[in-house]
């Protein structure tokens, strides 16, 4: 019997981010308009595996999902052991732009979820002309914290299991159990302190209130999609953000939580395919 293979191919990219050498892992599938996908905090590009295997997407888009440095199969930079990982608006933006440049992508579409959604808003604020379209999943200019991140990295609490248990409540009850637990498994595999370091961007450094008002959707179309069961980035947070951006398209997804592409791929498809149709 012939091997049963998923269509995506994974490779390692050598590049510099802010002058530092990195080895970044990414997976890609399809041909056409480049569509760069950004995973959530503390997770990795596997969250997009269903999109990468969807012919309705890959027939028109070259889908690329890379693991952020420190995440998944992307190693931290040399000397990582001497520092505490902290993602910032500047370092996150630099990583995305460096990836797009190194891969020689021509005006890609960027879609990000959670912290990936927040940074997509920053791309719309600061670098809109570089992109064909931007899609922010579970994104807002600011969200109220709902737990103390100090619990995410300490020797007496298993970081992976605590991270997964915390975010488990962000998954909609209607999501298939298999997809729910696959999503949580990725959280359990994060490196020590990485989820916490990502949330530094989310909670401390990435406050985009007021700044989103400067987004010009005539330069680059912007789409916001948020699941109704996401109580971290609530529907109200996203709608409040959208109300400040003329021309933005916003939709609240029923029966979906904070991880639409991995917690309920079939449901997410219903929402994302019409948007990708418009973009293509």
């Amino acid at each position: 019997m012939a091997p049963v293979l998923d269509p995506m191919i994974g490779r390692y990219l050598r590049l510099q981010i802010d002058g530092v050498d990195h080895r970044v892992y990414f997976e890609e599938a399809g041909r056409g308009i480049p569509l760069v996908c950004l995973h959530t905090a503390g997770a990795d590009g596997r969250q997009y595996r269903h999109l990468l295997a969807d012919p309705a997407v890959t027939s028109r888009f070259r889908v690329l999902a890379f693991d952020m440095p420190w995440h998944g199969k992307s190693t931290p930079p040399d000397g990582w052991e001497k520092s505490e990982y902290r993602l910032t608006t500047a370092s996150y933006t630099a990583a995305i732009r460096a990836f797009c440049k190194a891969m020689e992508l021509d005006k890609p579409v960027v879609m990000g979820c959670s912290i990936g959604g927040r940074i997509v808003l920053n791309l719309a604020i600061a670098h809109a002309a570089e992109f064909r379209a931007l899609i922010a999943l579970e994104a807002a200019d600011f969200q109220q914290p709902w737990y103390d991140t100090a619990w995410l990295h300490r020797p007496d609490v298993h970081g992976g299991e605590a991270c997964a248990a915390l975010v488990s409540g962000l998954i909609a009850p209607q999501s298939p159990p298999v997809s729910r637990h696959e999503t949580l498994w990725m959280y359990m595999q994060g490196g020590p302190g990485v989820f916490k370091g990502d949330l530094y961007f989310y909670r401390v450094d990435g406050d985009l209130r007021e700044k989103v008002k400067s987004i010009d959707t005539k330069v680059c179309p912007l789409y916001l999609l948020t699941g109704e069961y996401d109580f971290s980035c609530t529907s109200e947070d996203t709608l409040r953000t959208a109300a400040q951006i003329p021309g933005v398209e916003v939709q609240i997804m029923k029966h979906v939580g904070h991880f639409p592409m991995s917690e309920h791929p079939a449901k997410f498809r219903e929402y994302i395919l019409p948007i990708l149709e418009k973009i293509s």
Binding site: Q144, W146, Y147, L166, S168, G169, L170, A172, P173, Q174, E228, Y229, F231, T234, S235
Partner: peptide, 16 residues
């Protein structure tokens, strides 16, 4: 059996 959004998790309850 299927809680409404915002009532479905312990931390959703504390947040509200």
């Amino acid at each position: 059996p299927v809680p409404a959004p915002g009532w479905h998790d312990l931390f959703a309850l504390t947040k509200r």
